[in-house]
Write a protein that binds this DNA or RNA. Sequence first.
DNA 1: GCAAGGTC
Length: 676
Amino acid sequence: MCQLPSVYDVMIAEKPKAAEKIATALGSYSRCSIDGVPVYLLRAGGSDIVIVTSAGHLFGPDTRVRGLPVTEIRWAPLWQFDPRSRHLRRFYYVLSKVVPRARSFINACDYDIEGSTIGYMIIRNFGDPHRAKRMKFSSLTPTELRKAFVNMTPLDVSNSMAGMARAELDWLWGINVSRLLIRAYTKASGRWRSLSAGRVQTPTLAEAVRRWKEINTYVPMPRFSLRATLAYGSAEVQAVPKGWAPSTRSEAIAIAEGVKKGGYMTASRYQEQVLEVRPPPPFNLTDLQEEAARIYGLSPYRTQEIAEELYLAALISYPRTNSQRLPSTLNYSEVLNALASNPRYSSLIKRLVSETGGHLQPRQGEKDDPAHPAIYPTGERPERLDRDHERVYDLVVRRFLAAFAKSAMIARRSLLLTDVDGRAWVAEGEAVVREGWLAYYSFSRPAEKELSRVPQGSRLKVQKVVLSTLWPPSRVQLSRLALLRWMEANDLGTKGTRARIIETLYRRGFLRSGRARTEVTDLGYAVYRALSAVAKELTSVELTRSFEEQLEMVAEGRATKDAVVSKAKDYISSLVGSVLSKGLDVLGTELVTISEGGKGPRCKLCSRAAGPSGLCELHEEALMKLRATLPEVARALGVGKREALAEIAKRSTTGTWVKEVAKAILSGSLDWPEDQ
DNA sequence: GCAAGGTC
């Protein structure tokens, strides 16, 4: 239990870890707890301070309205209506006991609009915004926190209003359009199903659709690769064309024969270039998710879950960060010493200390985060971790060690050659000449390849020339990781929500993991089409950009939250009204004909609704691309169109719909205008 | 029940 002073100022932190850091920074404190929620007591600036904490948002928008449209928003404690927020009840209880009795209130949540809102809502519900101040800090370091305490500013109400506006706009768009989808689906199919739309998830679905179409309508263009094996003494040298490529198969064959007949190539220049490769910066969450996916195939969401568990076990620092920078206040050698007690890292750390001579200057990245530094190991010794936790932890430790190590030195060697007809060829080699950070973080080690030094003018005997026809795969990717990268590049969602929102798309059945990659389902495509027809703004990142502009106006006091929200209410109500008044037809038709079969003509190649051509628009698009590319493929291969079509139908890199179209033409079940 | 944003 806690004995509170009779007069005190209360300081509200966003999360328990921050409360602890603030307490530590401000002086010697005593800590007690109520219901397991920590409370810190200390004297600072001549008064008694009580530090209490939330655990993220404590309040959120809710409504009693069940129908459509819904414009009534009530902010309510999350634990009262959101089953996943039940843990917040204890925090709510403690805040409701400690805050009201305070003399004044300090919002010490992270300095961003979400933090401003978290603290403001607590002060508004349990205290009094007129007797409140704001602490502004950009990191949780003692110096910064002390500075923020001395330089407190008036409560930043307009930032909180911007945060509330963000929440209300997201909620209005999300709840209304989701309900509209569900209702249309239920009406058209007679079944209930959970469907959803939102400012972040719907543009992400739209991007998945774009990529899915690209991949499935992809027609590979054959490339003819030549590889000459040359002998230099007892060494073998592999040479490939330099700066040119045969454009047809017959040309490639002629060249291969000419080179073989010529018998030798002449070395024109041997070059060696040593590249300095700096260590990668310490991890932010996205980089960690990328590496865990690349190296271990972990989904971004799984990686995030694991990182959060490692954080709660005090093994690593706060993972929901954008920063690639380690705090200068962190005692690096203390962390290294602690890590060295783990036999797994002791010899690596010994090596690191000797290589750096104890001079620990980490590589810092470009990206920063106002609230948190990059992810680093605390040095705490892990007890027992399962395989995936162990892997993620190991990545964090090694990336941390690598940050202090020297650059790697990579020698790129190349040998320029000329064949008897004067064409240029090149043989390449790569070697690690100094390991540097690669010794600590070996996941990025280049594949080494030898290349002996050959003096200029030497003749190298041609042993063989191999010609292979390549059908390069589409460069477009569709996977959880690819979508995550796209979201980050477009500033969609936040570090903490991106992976989760991607999972939502899978959970709703909009996306599905196929054999090798992700696919959009018929349902996902139907939802995308339906929304393009009735709420186009939801399908693009522009809605987020327009939110950002409006929120900035609110934060700067050039617009009020109520004005912005009420405009959105009007807009969404009329959107919902117009869809409802048309009997949900547009939505329902899209949802049902595409995902369930429905009535009307079917595509000759699948069960989707067909257009006038007898094909659905996806196979139609595949047919068009095939038509545009086929002549070029046939010319490159030196064969007729029908034979080229047979080749395309066989290739594993060909897009699925293109393959289906090609097979149908070959079997005669689909007309091919070019034949007539 | 539907969003997206905090964080346990």
